[in-house]
Amino acid sequence: MSLPSAVIPKAEVIGDPIAHSKSPLIHRFWLGKLGLEGFYEKTRVGGEELGDFFSDRRNLPGWRGCNVTVPHKQAVIPFLDRIDPVAAKIGAVNTIVARDGALIGHNSDAAGFLEPLQPSLNDRHLYRMARILGAGGAAKAVAHALSSHGFTLVIAARNLAQAEALAAEIEDVDTHVATLDHFADPTDFAFDDRSGVLDLVVNTTPLGMTGQPPLRLDFSHVPPGAVIYDIVYAPLETAMLAEARARGHQTVDGLAMLIGQAAEAFRLFFGQAAPREHDAELRALLTA
């Protein structure tokens, strides 16, 4: 669908494929709640079309920018005029803001990921450790976000070299690597006293998503009291989260990160904070 011609604030999400994106629903919901005039759409853009897309949009009246989803979070970087320091550190852009003809790249994934963890992060801990399953674009944002809060990281990927490459990017904290298969098989490792420790297990892979193979995680690798976080949101309760809840773990689902990162993008596009007091209604809408 083409963007409307009226000079009103406009934004969109681009990717290939794009039909699955829930971003338009989220941003339109907030625009409606605030009574703001604005428009948000999804647009399929192939990799070979990125140059023409940005040439067309750069000076389009009212165009505030776009969110970027797979597979373009790194491919868009050459078309930008500036990159926010957080996005530059992560090496991926998921939000592009148009300002006076310039395109500025941001990454709201890191802030969106951390948002539901903030109550725990506000506490002091003797030690913080995160097991990150996956080493792709989402894992990069997660790893950099957690490193800024002093977590020791274990990064696990199907391709060990990919995990090693991500670990090499992380500065100032200890990093370790493993294969995903390591966490699939039972272990007899005896965890020590975890009181005063913040343990986190994060799935950043598409495994467990509708239409994808399941994520194989044996909970003998999960420390007592660990927070289990799955960024997959279709289904909202993945097999990993269901087992974690049954075992008494605190859990965070994928909508938390999705809504959190969208709120930061909304502020950048439309100049107002998202009305988060309506989160329960929005979550019901997203899962209907």
Rank of each mutant, 00 (worst) to 15 (best):
G101A: 03
G248P: 08
V13N: 01
A92W: 12
L160I: 12
T287H: 10
F113Y: 01
F183C: 10
F54W: 10
A98G: 07
A88C: 14
A157S: 15
G32W: 00
R283F: 06
S108D: 06
P275L: 01
P275Y: 07
Y127N: 07
A11F: 06
A234W: 09
E243T: 14
V97D: 07
A190C: 15
H27W: 02
R44A: 02
A157K: 14
S55D: 10
E12A: 07
R267G: 13
D188S: 11
R194K: 10
V227L: 06
A87H: 15
A102W: 10
D199V: 08
R64I: 08
T69D: 04
V177P: 15
G254C: 00
V227A: 06
T205A: 00
L286T: 15
E281N: 08
K140Y: 01
S147M: 00
G15Q: 03
D100A: 10
A288P: 15
H249P: 07
G91M: 11
A156T: 12
L285E: 14
A190W: 15
S2M: 07
A145H: 08
H72P: 13
K73M: 09
P71S: 01
A138Q: 07
D172G: 13
R28Q: 03
S148M: 02
L215Q: 09
S23P: 06
Q212L: 05
N122S: 08
V68Y: 04
A19N: 11
G271P: 14
A246Q: 11
G38M: 00
